[in-house]
């Protein structure tokens, strides 16, 4: 089993590095996960991660790229809800990487 040590607490990860439990998530865990991906989280990352957690609360699933873009556009406007912006923030794979950093399960419809 993979795991991550954050602030003295051992967090369980699945084989692909996603959190086992949504409730384990915290901002410091997100930062640690991002570091593992070579990413330093900026405010523009955070607003997407928090939005993704809202998405999961509402729909109980992790979005594929297209619904993610639509949802961000709906909530934050099309300046941010477009694939260019999201690809730039999350190394070209926003659905997978942002879900991972937000503590969500891997999007199952993202093939």
């Amino acid at each position: 089993m993979k795991s991550l040590l954050v602030e003295g607490k051992l967090i369980q990860l699945d084989p692909e590095g996603y959190l086992q439990s949504l409730d384990d998530w915290s901002e410091s865990i997100a930062s640690a996960l991002a570091q593992g991906e070579g990413l330093i989280l900026q405010p523009e990352h955070w607003e997407i991660l928090l939005l993704l957690r809202e998405f999961y609360q509402e729909f109980q699933l992790s979005p594929a790229t297209r619904p993610l873009v639509k949802y961000v556009a709906l909530k934050l406007g099309t300046d941010k809800g477009n694939s260019l912006h999201l690809n730039r923030l999350f190394k070209g794979t926003p659905a997978k990487l942002a879900a991972k950093l937000a503590g969500l399960p891997k999007p199952s419809n993202c093939l």
Binding site: F59, Q60, L61, P63, A64, P67, Y71
Partner: peptide, 15 residues
Amino acid sequence: QKDLTANLQALSLFG
């Protein structure tokens, strides 16, 4: 079980 009703609400976001 998981909430299928919540999942169904995401349909329009999936186009």
